[in-house]
């Protein structure tokens, strides 16, 4: 069990920088009134970010990933339980990677 100074500095620096990003939104929101157009923007934020996180994986990686994403979306559309939806996604991506 060793702990190097430069490593410790890097870990602490990363931790502080990351925590700053986590709380920045909370403080920025004190100066924002959410109604009308701003409300439309904030309501769209969660789905837009969720999609942006996964988009490179599901539309720009390969046919297997894109098809698996479509199958997963169908499972989600039919309101299957979350764990079932995730398992369908994982199984279909493994099978499709073998096929295509």
């Amino acid at each position: 069990m060793t702990l190097q100074l430069s490593t410790l500095l890097a870990i602490l620096g990363m931790a502080v920088a990351t925590y700053a990003t986590r709380i920045a939104g909370l403080f920025l929101m004190r100066y924002v009134t959410v109604k009308g157009r701003t409300k439309a923007a904030f309501d769209a934020l969660p789905p837009a970010i969720l999609m942006a996180v996964i988009a490179p994986t599901i539309i720009a990686t390969g046919i297997a990933e894109t098809l698996a994403a479509a199958i997963t979306a169908a499972a989600a559309f039919f309101r299957l339980p979350m764990i079932v939806t995730i398992l369908i996604g994982m199984v279909s991506v493994v099978l499709l990677r073998m096929l295509v």
């Binding site: 500095l9 620096g13 990351t18 990003t21 920045a24 939104g25 929101m29 904030f42 996180v53």
Partner: peptide, 28 residues
């Protein structure tokens, strides 16, 4: 090795800057 701590700190901030938007939304 040794860890480029300043570079790693700035990179962590850039990679995690999405948290600003997520936190703003969640704080509502």
């Amino acid at each position: 090795d040794p860890a480029p701590w300043f570079f790693l700190t700035v990179t962590a901030f850039i990679v995690n800057v999405r948290h600003v938007l997520m936190g703003a939304s969640l704080s509502r």
